[in-house]
Design a protein around this nucleic acid. Structure first.
Length: 442
DNA sequence: GTTGAGCGTT
């Protein structure tokens, strides 16, 4: 008798995922054909999950799985293998360390809960055929959705926009940190104007002091990933005995402040990364450590590498920009408005809030403007992407020369023709096709 | 039934 091994015919690889390190609770989840695992697939089995981690065989430490564009990427060339992967949840993974005084952490958490409330998010440009159900379904890949409201006129005709609310701040952050394509339309998801300035502004970045010279950005990333998704690590080279770690969730960042941690046998201290205000020297920040105007994504990342540094194709850069953080660690662009300067400086230091107030680009626009060399006139105007949106892969790999020339086109949907947004153009030169402006939406 | 920048009665 021949054994029918239907399993082998399944083109999808399955990976074992559990809520904890107990194999018994594991669920096998199918990957995509390209080897990535969709976050939505994960969420389908583990509602509210925001990522994956695993215990490294040799180092015995927990490692985070890279998340990019809603896809989870296998640890290395080796692929997912037979390891057990552990689900990461926004809240639950918050405090696993025991090296904190309880009263301290409790008080801190309480404060944070008060500050880090979700707000409704406005979704602009929804497809006419959207339903509250379909929108809810779409956004559930970022976390639990507690409300969806599609706005209609008195006749009950859908007006093309609506509001969504997440259960957790982390989910909200994830949703804000991405561009959204729903049924072929680019949908703008933002903090509503009415909530600007009301939403909490929390630093996502922490200062890590007393680093030793052998601590690489990767070391820090690996270590701190156990507390939450790390979106950036910055370790100055030459050695300066400190570093910065940026988390997706500002709450995680805050919860770590004031703590000491042992990394590679050395005790490091975590504290808040004080915002750098331009014109005022700051204890934690040296101005323009890598030269100015490095906003093109083509520069080599800061020495030390690590997440967000030289990594192509990740959401982190996008996250950071959407969250108002300069992914390259360089200086903020030249805003015209002083308030923007301050905001940009705050953002650079990891204040992943939303630039409220008139004339300031919200998170979605932050990514949109010409980084430099522009008058700033359009840069400060809201909603410049419109339906022509940023190139789908503008943040991936070596970016096209979005500093070069044609700045005036950025806000008008007139993308240079022949520009490739595929994310793999070698160093900014344009190849062909893929014109973002070719996309038509109805 | 049409449409595509905007900002929610409750």
């Amino acid at each position: 008798m021949t054994n029918k091994t239907t399993v082998n015919e399944d083109p999808f690889q399955y990976i074992k995922v559990s809520e904890d390190e107990d194999d018994a609770n594991a669920v096998e989840i199918p990957c995509e054909l390209d080897g990535t695992l969709l976050l939505s697939t994960l969420v389908a089995q583990f509602p509210g999950a925001c990522g994956l981690k695993y215990r490294h065989r040799e180092t015995k430490t927990i490692r985070g799985i890279r998340l990019s564009d809603g896809k989870l990427h296998p640890p290395s060339e080796a692929g997912w293998g037979k390891l057990l992967y552990i689900c990461v949840f926004p809240k639950e993974n918050k405090r696993k360390m025991e090296d904190v005084s309880p009263e301290n952490s409790a008080a801190k958490t309480k404060r944070l809960e008060k500050k880090l409330t979700c707000s409704d998010l406005i979704c602009l440009g929804l497809p006419w055929k959207s339903t509250e159900e379909s929108i809810k379904q779409y956004f559930e890949q970022f976390g639990e959705v507690v409300m969806v409201q599609l706005k209609k006129d008195k006749n009950g005709v859908f007006k093309g926009f609506g509001f969504v609310r997440f259960a957790t701040y982390a989910s909200q952050m994830r949703a804000l940190a991405q561009r959204h394509n729903i049924d072929g339309r680019w949908v703008d998801v933002r903090i509503p104007n009415s909530k600007e300035g009301v939403v909490p502004q929390m630093p996502c970045k922490v200062f890590v002091g007393r680093c030793t010279e052998d601590m690489t950005a990767e070391d820090l990333c690996e270590y701190f990933s156990r507390f939450g998704e790390v979106t950036d690590v910055f370790v100055p080279r030459p050695f300066r005995a400190f570093g910065f770690v940026t988390f997706l969730d500002p709450e995680v960042a805050q919860s770590l402040c004031g703590e000491d941690h042992v990394i590679k046998g050395a005790s490091v201290s975590v504290s808040s990364a004080a915002p750098k205000i331009k014109g005022k020297s700051n204890q934690n920040w040296k101005e323009e450590p890598y030269g100015s105007n490095n906003w093109d994504g083509n520069r080599p990342g800061p020495a030390g590498g690590g997440k967000g540094n030289g990594n192509s194709n990740n959401i982190d850069t996008l996250n950071m920009q959407n969250l108002g953080i300069n992914p390259n660690g360089g200086p903020p662009p030249n805003f015209n408005l002083p308030i923007s300067l301050v905001a940009a400086a705050l953002n650079q230091a990891g204040w992943g809030g939303f630039l409220g107030g008139q004339g300031n680009a919200g998170p979605n626009n932050w990514q949109g403007g010409p980084p430099q060399g522009s008058s700033g006139k359009n840069w400060n105007g809201n909603q410049n992407w419109g339906q022509n949106g940023p190139p789908p892969a503008w943040n991936q790999g070596s970016n096209p020369n979005w500093n070069g020339g044609k700045n005036g086109n950025w806000n008008q949907g007139n993308w240079p023709s022949g520009q490739s947004w595929g994310g793999n153009s070698g160093g900014g030169s344009a190849s062909s096709g893929g014109g973002w402006n070719n996309k038509s939406q109805t």
